[in-house]
Design a protein around this nucleic acid. Sequence first.
DNA 1: TCTGTGTGTGAGACCGTTCCCACACACTTA
DNA 2: TAAGTGTGTGGGAACGGTCTCACACACAGA
Lengths: 336, 336
Amino acid sequence: MEHTIKEIALRAGVSKSTVSRVISGKGYTSLEVRNRVLQLIEELQYKPNAVARAMVSQRTHNIGVLIYRRHHPIASHPFYGKILDAILMTAASMNYSVFVTTDHEMSLRSADFMMEKRVDGLILISRLQQNVIDYIANFGVPYVMVNGSTDVDGVMHIVNQDEEGGRMVAEHLTDRGHRHIFVIAGPQTHRSHNLRLKGFKNHLRELEIPFPASSILQASTSTFGEGYELMRAHWEEFRAGGFTSLFATNDMIALGAMKFMLEQAVRIPEQVAVVGFDDIDFATMFSPSLTTIRVNTEEMGTQAFSLLDKLIRQEANIENPQQLVPKLIIRQSTQI
Amino acid sequence: MEHTIKEIALRAGVSKSTVSRVISGKGYTSLEVRNRVLQLIEELQYKPNAVARAMVSQRTHNIGVLIYRRHHPIASHPFYGKILDAILMTAASMNYSVFVTTDHEMSLRSADFMMEKRVDGLILISRLQQNVIDYIANFGVPYVMVNGSTDVDGVMHIVNQDEEGGRMVAEHLTDRGHRHIFVIAGPQTHRSHNLRLKGFKNHLRELEIPFPASSILQASTSTFGEGYELMRAHWEEFRAGGFTSLFATNDMIALGAMKFMLEQAVRIPEQVAVVGFDDIDFATMFSPSLTTIRVNTEEMGTQAFSLLDKLIRQEANIENPQQLVPKLIIRQSTQI
DNA sequence: TCTGTGTGTGAGACCGTTCCCACACACTTA
DNA sequence: TAAGTGTGTGGGAACGGTCTCACACACAGA
């Protein structure tokens, strides 16, 4: 079932060089020979061996996607999964195959693995530790980061305009008259959560709306469960504070908090308006649907791959990627 | 930055055979030489070239996961994404790398691609068309199906006990006194939806509870949007029918239908109880949380890989996989 | 002394491609 | 006629490993 170029050559009565030429389309081949070889390939279902090809070309045409997620496996993650999907699509359209590795804690080992497989490049998603990045950089393999925890000099990094997004949230809520906004902020270890909060606070400051420390809660993970739990644990404070709205720095936290409030028979948005961030699929599906800032995950994935491809092909003048523009999506949770 | 075994050999003053022996641990090597080589490997950060290794061993230690999804990209899919996660985990723990391919329509091309890359085996998820399966089978590469649309003789297939799950739903609802159950059934093209419905109907028949054709709706896709739309389009029928409960053959449809009902101010579960199927993450998060049948997706992924691994290693006496046991998860949507 | 066995090492074929080079032939042009 | 150019083909090294085989040496037992 497994044929080689040599076999095809033998049957066609030509040399393997000629067959190679027919397949690659480079160099001269007579029409007669070309047809004969092509027919044989079709007949025997010959598939060129990409492993052997990689051996000589020193290019595997494979890339690796490395994701570090402590609290949630990668693929099914409502946010990172979307990015992965986009990468998969784009890569396939450019004839690349993609190794996906999800590895908690022992990311050095999976990096090793990718190196042994001689991937042409790597895409790193989310909060990889610095040592992993150093390790990879040290290897000289091109790589691109997506939504990483920090910006590192000289590293290509695809991110959203998170600060601007935070500002949009503040604008939206204040426009609707809200002056007492409660905030649940995601992990301080993550760049995007910090910037979202920063943009939000800055806008309030510009409007000279007070934002006391008591109106903000620090989440240690950016999960649904954390949102729910924090809301439950601080329910009395929340009620006593006279808050008319809630902003969580991502949708999962927002939804968790909402779920708890709904269970307390709070009417959303009538009594409390809620805004999230990310626009995961579930944001539309939830009842009431969630007003949020859409992060263009598809664009993130596509850009990440295109950028990596350029790095791999060593294209000249590769520009640092532009930050992606977020978009306010108004839904039931703020619409009276 | 990229070293070869030859280089290590040269520096260590031994032959490449010896270095190879040290790395693989096969054959005799003196302690002294072993240490010298190992230290050199460490020092130079030498990573054996898996491509070259695959070339001679005729084994890449790579597998491919092929998914066909018309209406939803794969990775972020709340059900299939979970299976993928489990495959990724298990494969990594057994030192396999995984190519993930999501390809709508043109699946033959992605299959081709995987063949060229000489994967050791394939995992096919969801409803791949017969011609793709034939194509792959014809190639002689080991493969395993997961939750496919049909059972094919002689093909290893990991599935859930869907019929039993359907029965459990009927039992749960009838136990709670429901006699007028509305059903939205997922695509007839898919094995699991059919069996779920079958098990459900059979149980009602056993209890001699009438189940008229008017109480069932046929969905053409198994999505949230479809559930919502169907419920909207048939809302008058539903209200006129005096139904006290709803069963949808998967969670997405159930949640979509629920969302519409909530918008109509229907109280769930007081006025209408709802049961789904799959137990996707959203099922717990939704408000009210959804009673459903849990499909052990983690086990599906794990079993799929283990089975494939056995096929690859040509283990003797490989047993056909047992169907996975579903579990009723009772949540707010049926709990008064 | 001879044979056998356990330990340690190196030479070189091989895996399936690509690609450089040599060569052959047909024309054209100086 | 000689040199050059365009077309078509084959030989064989190279990519970086693994693995078989041959061989060398030490030591045991007959």
